[in-house]
Every structure is written in structure tokens, then in C-alpha cells.
Design a protein around this nucleic acid. Structure first.
Length: 353
DNA sequence: AATGCGGGGCT
DNA sequence: AGCCCAGCATT
């Protein structure tokens, strides 16, 4: 049946069979996927590349081989292991979800897409991915890869996010009535290795003959996106404060919001006002002789740039603010986000410690 | 529907 | 410097 074998789904599945990629979370041969591994990897892979995820994944399953082990861990241990991976709400929800799986689902992930969707950190994409990959349900996970492949195959030229619903419908309609897990991974693999955002490799694409976007001539322009706003810049002064025992003052950020639950050095407000307009409350809390460290630390978040001037000083014995005095050699045991690692490196490099 | 939420690896 | 990414939660 030529018409069937030339369907996009069959072309993609045939390509997948010849181009299997190996990942530590992916089942090989005939073995069943490990639901804990699939779930953990899918959470890590939200907005994050496989190359970035792989070492974190291996570290996690070594520390916590089962969902029961993860549920028994302290949140701070999980945040520490997650440090550098970003989107820290994922780590908090991961831990919360593990506890629910153990306490309410007897340690087993529910074989029900709606129940999966109700769990913290699991949205439409992840619920569909687990349903298809672990349970072989008829589910269609739609991520950025799938959106791009669908937009090009069907030459959808209207911009995201306007056409998101349309792309989801196209993805569902092209899902074959077989091999749901393989197909879900096949489309994403195609998007990650062939139908890539820049300079797609159409010459080796299994769908070249049926791709309307390719036929139209500019698949690399798809999907279109609505223009984004320029990021504002915020400024702050941040304080590398030691005491006479040569300990560093650190504290924990609030559980919610930006870098929630992670450790930080104290700083002024992160203000759109420039440095010279910033309040300098830390200059008056019993510190002698703050010195500004030359240059600044720059960092970019999802929605703003941040530029920080770093100050160093030694606190007198009466300094009384809320936080932790941390030994220098214990700093790497703390759950610092990348920004704080940059600041620490900047200060300690300057101070030669 | 819009916004907040990291960080790294491309070009 | 801008782009993208195996998205979710909140409002």
C-alpha cells in the first residue's frame, strides 16, 4: 500500500528505526521503559537540551535509584543536585511529585493521562510523553520540536503562539494507531537532529518528498514567532561578607519566585535604577571598610539582564542579620544558582582565596 | 491569554 | 547580541 507507507508517520518511524539514539533514560531492545527514569528525564528535559540533562540525570539516578529514594530525600539535597540546571520550580515540584507517588499511588506512576496531568510539574506535554512512552497509550506529546516539524510539514506560516492549537491538532491527526512511544520519540528526534531550527538538513530528511514547507522553499523560516520585547536591565550591589573566622555570609531565598529556595549572597534590591541610585543599606550594619571589587558580574535571566557590583568586607562581631556563616570549604555543598556561582568566583578570584 | 521562570549552546 | 530549547504554574 503505497499511500500508507508514504504517510508522514511511517516515513518518520522507518527513519527512527534506522537512526536510534541512545540515552540513559531510553529503553533498549525489548525491555520495558523505567517509568521513574522516563518521568525524571522528561522533567529535566523541559526547556533543556539532552546534552545538558544527561550528567544531571545520571547523577540523580545514582543518588536516588528509585522514586522512593527521591521521595525520602531532603528538598535541599534535591535543590543542590539540581543546581545549574535552572527553572528551580522543577526541582521543588519533582520532589513534591515523588512524595505523592509514594504516599498516594503506592510508589507507581498512574497509568492514566489525566491523573498524570494532575501531578505537580507534569503538564500536557509531560503527561502525554509518559503515557505514550511508558504505557503505550495513544497520546501525542507536543514540544518545540513537534511544533516545528508540524509547521514545516504543513507549511503553517502564521506565527506562534497564535497557531499553537493548530499545530497540536496537526500532531494528533498525524499520530499513527501503533507504536505510540516510538512515534513520540521519533518526531522529537527528527526535530532535534534533522528538522533543526537553523539550517535544517532537508537533504537527508525522510519527509523531504511530502514536506509542504520544503516544497514552498523556506522551511527554515518556520515556525514564525511573534516579536519579543527587549529585556530590561536591572542593577544591584551584592556583598561578599566574611567574619573573623573567615566564614562567608549566605542565606536562603524565599521558596517561591525567582531562584526560589536556592542560596544567595545578600544584595540590594535588583532595581532598574542604576548603581549610583541604589540604596546602600549594607554599608551601615557593623561592617568596616567595604571595598568594591573591580568590574561587575553580568547575568541574563528569562526576562531581564542583571548587572551586579560585588563588594567585599569583614563583619565585626556584632553584626546581626539572619542567615548562615559558611566555611569557605563548605561553599560547594550549598545549592547556589549559576548567578551566585559567578559572583563567588568573581570575589574569590579577586581575593585569591 | 499573558507572564514569570535558568541556563547553555548555537550563530 | 539574539535565537532556540523534550514546558509548567500562576494569574
Amino acid at each position: 500500500m503505497v499511500a500508507t507507507s508514504l504517510s508522514p508517520a511511517n516515513l518518520i518511524l522507518d527513519w527512527f528505526d534506522l537512526n536510534q539514539r541512545s540515552f540513559p533514560w531510553r529503553a533498549t531492545g525489548g525491555e520495558n521503559p523505567n517509568s521513574y527514569w522516563v518521568w525524571l528525564s522528561e522533567i529535566m528535559l523541559q526547556q533543556t537540551n539532552t546534552t545538558t540533562v544527561q550528567p544531571y540525570f545520571l547523577d540523580f539516578i545514582k543518588r536516588w535509584p528509585t522514586v522512593n529514594d527521591l521521595a525520602s530525600a531532603k528538598l535541599d539535597q534535591v535543590l543542590h543536585a539540581w543546581q545549574g540546571l535552572g527553572y528551580y520550580a522543577r526541582a521543588r515540584n519533582l520532589h513534591k511529585c515523588a512524595k505523592i507517588i509514594v504516599e498516594e499511588f503506592n510508589g507507581e506512576f498512574p497509568d492514566d493521562e489525566k491523573k498524570l496531568l494532575s501531578l505537580p510539574g507534569i503538564g500536557p506535554y509531560t503527561a502525554a510523553a509518559i503515557s505514550a512512552i511508558v504505557f503505550e497509550f495513544n497520546a501525542t506529546p507536543v514540544d518545540g520540536n513537534v511544533e516545528r516539524v508540524m509547521a514545516r510539514l504543513n507549511n503553517v506560516t502564521k506565527p506562534l503562539p497564535l497557531v499553537k492549537g493548530e499545530l497540536i491538532a496537526l500532531a494528533k491527526n498525524s499520530t499513527p494507531q501503533k507504536r505510540f512511544g516510538d512515534y513520540a520519540q521519533a518526531v522529537m528526534d527528527l526535530g532535534a537532529t534533522v528538522c533543526v531550527p537553523k539550517k535544517p538538513k532537508c537533504s537527508i530528511c525522510p519527509c523531504k518528498s511530502i514536506c509542504i514547507g520544503f516544497k514552498a522553499g523556506n522551511p527554515e523560516k518556520l515556525p514564525q514567532r511573534s516579536p519579543k520585547k527587549a529585556l530590561p536591565t536591572r542593577y544591584a550591589k551584592i556583598y561578599f561578607m566574611r567574619n573573623h573566622q573567615n566564614q562567608v555570609f549566605i542565606r536562603r531565598r524565599e521558596e517561591k519566585g525567582l531562584l526560589g529556595g536556592m542560596m544567595e549572597l545578600p544584595s540590594t534590591e535588583w532595581s532598574v535604577q542604576h548603581f549610583d541610585k541604589l540604596e546602600e543599606s549594607f554599608l551601615s550594619i557593623g561592617i568596616v571598610n567595604w571595598k568594591q571589587i573591580p568590574n561587575s558580574v553580568k547575568h541574563t535571566f528569562t526576562h531581564f539582564h542583571l548587572e551586579m557590583q560585588v563588594y567585599e568586607g569583614v563583619a565585626d562581631e556584632n553584626t546581626d542579620i539572619s542567615g548562615i556563616w559558611c566555611n569557605l570549604e563548605d561553599l560547594d555543598k550549598q545549592a547556589f544558582p549559576s548567578l551566585m556561582k559567578k559572583v563567588l568566583k568573581h570575589a574569590m578570584s579577586y581575593l585569591k582565596i
